[in-house]
């Protein structure tokens, strides 16, 4: 056993968050701007990912049932897999937002540069 860390969890959390903010990743300001514009858009997209995967799972289940004449066995199984896939692609989509934020921040920087050179 190593010596337990004396600092409280709260302190360590704050320190970790500080370090994370300092490293790469979108600034808080960028995140706020993005979220204020399209919070509904993000919600809509996560919902679409979830619904899409569930529907695909259901469709595969119905197809397999028709093929093997085992209704409703595969429908139930693939529905479960579809929901699981929906949750997973939702999580992936959320991770992709970080990438999008960075790309948008880059574009914003480019635009600022152009605007800066345009106005003497």
């Amino acid at each position: 056993m190593t010596e337990p860390d004396k600092s409280t969890l709260k302190d360590r959390l704050a320190k970790a968050q500080e370090a994370r903010r300092a490293s790469e990743g979108p600034s808080e300001e960028t995140v706020q701007r993005y979220e204020s514009i399209s919070g509904a858009g993000i919600a809509l997209r996560l919902a679409a990912e979830f619904t899409g995967a569930t529907l695909v799972g259901l469709a595969i289940g119905i197809g397999l049932d028709r093929w093997f004449k085992t209704s409703p066995l595969f429908l139930l199984i693939m529905f479960g897999f579809g929901v699981a896939a929906g949750v997973m692609s939702g999580i992936r989509a959320y991770r992709n937002f970080n990438i999008e934020l960075e790309v948008q921040a880059l574009a914003q920087a480019d635009q600022d540069e152009i605007n800066g050179t345009d106005t003497p």
Binding site: R45, A48, G52, V56
Partner: peptide, 23 residues
């Protein structure tokens, strides 16, 4: 467990890609 899940989430991509823009 993983392969069906990955397969379904891959197959859902064209669906969500098309539906999102259209909707």
């Amino acid at each position: 467990l993983l392969i069906p899940i990955e397969l379904i989430s891959f197959l859902a991509r064209p669906l969500t890609l098309a539906l999102r823009l259209f909707a």
